[in-house]
Nucleic acid binder design. Structure first.
Ligand SMILES: [Zn+2]
Ligand SMILES: [Zn+2]
Ligand SMILES: [Zn+2]
Ligand SMILES: [Zn+2]
Lengths: 159, 159
DNA sequence: GCGGCGAATGTTATATTATAACATATCCAT
DNA sequence: ATGGATATGTTATAATATAACATTCGCCGC
């Protein structure tokens, strides 16, 4: 779904934006939070918390073995501040592709290549909003995850 | 969100429909599957697998202690056959309110009373379908879960 | 009825995901 | 430098889910 020519740039961009956002909001973008965000961005698909944990362990032996709470705290921080989203249907985390202008988004998740594309679509948001109103429901959070097969994968293999 | 005057009737309806559906499809609606479905329907909100497990244990001591795989197998069966839906954002399961005419639905989940209302809305389905096409994405499964506060709960407490 | 096959369940063990609770360290303002 | 708030370390465990293999059950043809 993504054809980034240089994924290092994707990561660098994400980290740079995170720095700016945290600075602007007077949040502390600590070393661990940075590393976790970097690892969430290791590809364009959702990443599991324990995979991040494993990588952190392997990454740097100056750092004592990282434990689950450390990773989950960093993920909580990143999620609360819109830098990362949790994909509930996969129990995994993906970097927000546009943290500055993120509103209600949804995900197209390819079950073949594992990538996730974050999309914003006014029609869907509108439809959800209307239906909430019709049901006199005060929506606070929307999880919309569409799994299937992306065009790249459908093209490359008979399915 | 629901004001069922007699929830026993809700449960009886659900079980009856399940019987018919399984009969029509030549599926075996076994005692365990029936009990699990009954427990999923213990209220109009999502129920946790391990709560079902606990209830089954307490329910009937003729039956040897039920183990997790038994419950998950029954939930898998019920889910595969559209009698139950999994709410991914809660790791919980809820009975399908219309298994015979279920299509793509979504859930309004009240974080206060814990009830979940299953809705079908052509506009949302249409919008999701269109956006999938625009992204050349072959959608296979949609998770749409809207959490918030229902009108009953919003009315009864200042929030 | 009996044998056999496939589906369902039992059983044991363990994998995976996530958090509670308390100790320690770090940051930063005064 | 001191104190309070925030972040991280540490230990333990809770909560969710599945793998793998054994046994039983239901059904069908004989
Ligand atoms: Zn990239
Ligand atoms: Zn986003
Ligand atoms: Zn009811
Ligand atoms: Zn409610």
């Amino acid at each position: 779904m993504y054809n980034c020519t240089s994924h290092k740039d994707c990561i660098a961009d994400a980290l740079h934006q995170a720095e700016e956002i945290c600075a602007a909001r007077h949040l502390r973008f600590t070393e661990i939070r940075r590393k976790v965000l970097e690892l969430v961005w290791q590809n364009h698909g959702p990443v599991k918390a324990y995979d991040i944990l494993d990588r952190l362990d392997g990454l740097d032996h100056r750092i004592a073995a990282i434990k689950p709470p450390t990773v989950y705290r960093a993920l909580d921080f990143l999620t609360e501040n819109g830098l990362v989203h949790k994909i509930n249907s996969l129990n995994a985390f993906v970097g927000c592709s546009h943290p500055l202008r993120h509103k209600e988004c949804y995900f197209l998740i390819c079950s073949d290549c594992g990538e996730a594309k974050e999309c914003c679509n006014p029609d869907i948001i509108e439809a959800i909003s209307k239906t909430s109103q019709r049901n006199e429901f005060q929506a606070e959070h929307v999880t919309l995850e569409i799994t299937g097969e992306c065009s790249d994968c459908r093209g490359s293999a008979a399915s």
